[in-house]
C-alpha cells in the first residue's frame, strides 16, 4: 500500500479502534465488578451526545486557550497514533520515528493540562500541578527505555526499521535480548500512569479533585478531551505491541506481504496489553497518593530503564 494512502486511512481507523478499545475496557471492568456494563460502542454514543451539547466557557477562563487546547490535544494524539499505525499498515518507510510519537503523546497531555489551567478553577490548578509531577515521574523512564532501542540491537529509532529488524531476526524485540526485555517492562509499567488510570489517576481523582483539569470542560471540548485520552491510551499499547512485541515477525517475510493479518495480530496484542496494564490495575488497586506514586516510578521503572540502556550499550 502506498505510504500516503496508508497514512490517510489510518486517521479514521485510529479513531474507531481506540474508541472500541475504550468500550471493551469499560465492559471488562464492569464484568469484573459483577456488573453487566455498558455496550461496547458506548464511547461512540458518548461522543455523539457530547458534540451536540451546549458550549459553556466559564467567565474565569481565558477563552482562546481554553477553547483551542482540547483541539491540539486531540490532533496531537491522533497524529501520533496514525504515524504508528500507518507504519504497520504500509510496511513502507514513513516519516517519523519513536521520539516523535513520544513527543506527540506528551504534547497531547500537556495541552489538556494547560487548557484546564486556563479555566481558572482551583481544582484544575491542583490537577495541573499533580499531572506535572506525575509526568516527571513517568516520562523519564519511558524516554530512556525508548532511547535504549537506538543503542540496542536494532540501532535505529525509525519505526519501520525496527519492524524490519524484528522480521529479519524472526523474533519480537522484547524476546531477542535482555536489554530490550527490560525496556519493554519499563514501558508496560509506565502505561497506567500515562493513561492516568487507578492506581495512578491522581491528577484526575474523581473523589478528591473531581477530574482535575477536566472539571470545567463540557460538551464538545470534553468530547475532544475524551478522544485525546482514548487515542493516546491506544497509542501507548500499540507502541509496545509494534516496537517490542511484534508477534507477526515470527512469520518472517510473510508479515510484510499479508499486512492485514499482521495488523490484526498487532491490534490483538495491544488489546491484551491494554487489558493487563489498564483494565486490571484499575479494577484491583486503590488510588495511590502523589508521593507514593512518585516513589514507585523513581524506584522500579527508572532502575529498569537505566538497566536496559546499560545492557544495550554493552551489547546484551
Amino acid at each position: 500500500m502506498d505510504a500516503a494512502v496508508a497514512f490517510i486511512t489510518s486517521f479514521p481507523l485510529v479513531l474507531v479502534v481506540s474508541l472500541l478499545f475504550e468500550g471493551i475496557d469499560r465492559k471488562i471492568h464492569a464484568r469484573m465488578q459483577k456488573r453487566i456494563g455498558p455496550p461496547i460502542i458506548q464511547p461512540f454514543y458518548d461522543l455523539i451526545k457530547l458534540f451536540n451539547k451546549e458550549r459553556i466557557i466559564p467567565v474565569t477562563a481565558s477563552t482562546r486557550v481554553f477553547e483551542i487546547m482540547p483541539m491540539i490535544a486531540a490532533a496531537a494524539s491522533i497524529l501520533g497514533a496514525s504515524i504508528l499505525l500507518s507504519n504497520t499498515l504500509s510496511g513502507l518507510g514513513m516519516i517519523g520515528d519513536l521520539i516523535l510519537v513520544m513527543y506527540l503523546l506528551a504534547m497531547s497531555s500537556i495541552a489538556l493540562m494547560v487548557g484546564g489551567l486556563a479555566s481558572g478553577n482551583p481544582y484544575a490548578a491542583i490537577g495541573f500541578s499533580r499531572k506535572m509531577s506525575m509526568m516527571i515521574a513517568y516520562e523519564i523512564p519511558m524516554f530512556i527505555a525508548i532511547i535504549s532501542v537506538a543503542f540496542g540491537p536494532p540501532a535505529v529509532l525509525t519505526i519501520d526499521r525496527v519492524i524490519k529488524f524484528q522480521i529479519s531476526t524472526r523474533l519480537p524485540l522484547a524476546v531477542s535480548s535482555l536489554s530490550m526485555a527490560s525496556a519493554a517492562a519499563t514501558l508496560l509499567l509506565c502505561i497506567p500512569a500515562a493513561a492516568s488510570v487507578v492506581p495512578f489517576d491522581i491528577p484526575e481523582a474523581k473523589t478528591e479533585i473531581i477530574y482535575g483539569f477536566l472539571i470545567e470542560y463540557g460538551g464538545p471540548y470534553l468530547a475532544l478531551a475524551k478522544i485525546a485520552k482514548a487515542v493516546s491510551n491506544f497509542t501507548l499499547t500499540l507502541l509496545v505491541s509494534v516496537v517490542f512485541l511484534y508477534i507477526p515477525s515470527l512469520l518472517g517475510e510473510e508479515a510484510l506481504i499479508n499486512l492485514g493479518i499482521s495488523l490484526s495480530i498487532c491490534l490483538a496484542v495491544s488489546l491484551l496489553i491494554m487489558f493487563a496494564t489498564i483494565t486490571v490495575p484499575r479494577t484491583i488497586f486503590a488510588r495511590l497518593k502523589i508521593g507514593q506514586a512518585f516513589k514507585f516510578y523513581w524506584m522500579l521503572p527508572l532502575a529498569l530503564s537505566i538497566l536496559s540502556i546499560i545492557l544495550s550499550v554493552i551489547g546484551l
Binding site: M32, Q33, R35, V198, A205, K206, T207, R282, A286, R287
Partner: peptide, 9 residues
Amino acid sequence: IGFDTLFMF
C-alpha cells in the same frame, strides 16, 4: 480511595 471494585462488592 478510588477502589471502585471494593465499593461495588
